[in-house]
Simulated assay, not measured.
Amino acid sequence: MAANSNATVVGHYSPRWLVVKRQGFLYLAPSAMLFSPDGPTRLLDGTVLPFDSDTKRISYQGVVEVPGTTKDQLYVRAYEWLAKTYRSANAVIQMQDKEAGRLVGKGVMKVTLRGFNAGYVQHTITIYLKDGRYKYILTDFAHEAGGAKDVYSAGPLERPDGEVMAFGDKKTWDKVRRDATADAELLIKDLQAAMTVKAGKDPSDF
């Protein structure tokens, strides 16, 4: 079943697996990845994380003007930024369409708790390019154990009960979500710096 799909829980297969029904078909789905968001995600201090009412997911998005640039120039900058930021374009980029001006990638942010590896938070980043501007969408945040010792996957960051699935207390789950969204904000700033860099000599011109 595709990520972010809507389905109805119709039974339990095991403590960690549920039977869900979607469009007449039955699927097995891990209980850690299922949730029913009822509104924006709120941290313990009352901070409300950016929320897309259509997708019901935490979502950072915006349109940035870059006067004097073409769609192709911005596409190259975005592609290079993805490759440098995530170390490998081949590993992160899920879809690329230069003609349409669209890049889609999946990345991860490491989670460290009390000095120990506690898995990672994955996310999806989509960048749309047009002459003189680009749009970014950063969403689909979800915690995965990733083989970390004594750590379970908590699933989407929107889960109000993520601490039950993986960490055992609300403060730890709150820290995971706060750190992940802080990293997201840094990514957005870094992307803007790369996309709005002043034109200089083309390094390929030698």
Rank of each mutant, 00 (worst) to 15 (best):
I93Y: 01
L113D: 01
Y86S: 01
D52T: 03
A180V: 09
W17K: 08
L18F: 09
L28W: 15
R133W: 12
D190N: 14
L49T: 03
G146L: 04
M165E: 14
H123A: 01
Y86N: 06
Y128S: 09
V63N: 10
G200R: 08
R87Q: 09
G39P: 06
E99M: 12
V10C: 08
V121F: 07
D97G: 03
K106D: 07
G147L: 11
M1I: 11
I58Y: 05
D52M: 07
Y27Q: 06
G68E: 10
K189E: 12
A142R: 14
A199T: 13
G39Y: 10
V10L: 05
D72T: 06
A148K: 03
A100Q: 13
Y60Q: 10
I188F: 05
G146F: 03
V197C: 00
W81I: 05
G62P: 10
V10N: 11
Q96P: 02
D169Q: 10
Y75F: 15
E144C: 07
L191E: 05
N6H: 14
R77E: 09
M1T: 06
T55F: 01
K56C: 09
F51S: 02
A7Q: 06
D54C: 01
S153E: 03
A78R: 09
P160I: 08
K171T: 15
T112W: 00
R102C: 05
K56S: 14
S5W: 07
D52F: 04
T70L: 01
N6I: 11
T70A: 06
V19K: 15
Q73E: 12
T196E: 13
D183K: 14
H12C: 05
V121H: 12
R114T: 02
K171F: 08
T55G: 05
T55S: 15
S53L: 02
R22V: 11
N4A: 15
F116T: 13
V19D: 12
E65D: 15
T124W: 04
Q73C: 00
G146I: 02
I188E: 03
F25L: 10
D169P: 04
G68H: 10
P156M: 13
D52E: 07
H123L: 14
G107Q: 00
A145N: 06
A83K: 13
Q122Y: 07
V63L: 12
T85I: 00
F141W: 04
L28V: 14
F116N: 04
K135R: 15
Y120G: 00
G115T: 05
I127F: 09
Y13A: 11
P37N: 00
H143P: 04
P37R: 00
L187P: 08
